[in-house]
C-alpha cells in the first residue's frame, strides 16, 4: 500500500516535472529575445536537477544525487557566463 502510494506519487511528480521542462524548452525555442532564452535555460537546469533527484529516490541510488549536484553547479556557471556575455559581448575580458 505504502509502496504503491509512493511509486505513484514519484511517477506523477516526474510527469509534472517533464511538463515543466517542456514549458521551459518552449521559452528557450520561442523566446522573443536572448535574455528570455537564457532564463528558460536556467529554469531547464533547475528542473533537470529536481528530475534527477526523483530518479534517485525511485532507484535508491546515490549516483543520481551526484549528477544532480553537478547539473546545479554547471547551471549556475553557464547562466552567469551567458548573462555576462549579454552584458559585455564577451565572457573573459
Amino acid at each position: 500500500m505504502t509502496l504503491t502510494l509512493l511509486m505513484g506519487t514519484i511517477f506523477l511528480t516526474q510527469i509534472l516535472l517533464v511538463v515543466a521542462m517542456a514549458f521551459a524548452s518552449f521559452r528557450v525555442l520561442r523566446g522573443p529575445r536572448a535574455q528570455d532564452r537564457v532564463l528558460g535555460l536556467d529554469t531547464l537546469y533547475v528542473t533537470a536537477t529536481m528530475l534527477l533527484l526523483t530518479f534517485g529516490i525511485r532507484n535508491g541510488s546515490i549516483l543520481y544525487f551526484e549528477a544532480a549536484l553537478i547539473i546545479a553547479l554547471l547551471g549556475f556557471v553557464s547562466t552567469a557566463a551567458l548573462a555576462k556575455f549579454l552584458m559585455r559581448g564577451e565572457v573573459i575580458e
Binding site: I10, T13, Q14, L16, A20, G40, V46, T47
Partner: peptide, 20 residues
C-alpha cells in the same frame, strides 16, 4: 514524503506556466 514531492513538482510547474 509523497506530499512534499507533489508540492515541489506542482510549484515548479506553476512557475514554468508563469514563464510561459
Amino acid at each position: 514524503a509523497a506530499l512534499l514531492l507533489l508540492a515541489g513538482a506542482g510549484l515548479t510547474l506553476i512557475g514554468t506556466v508563469g514563464l510561459l
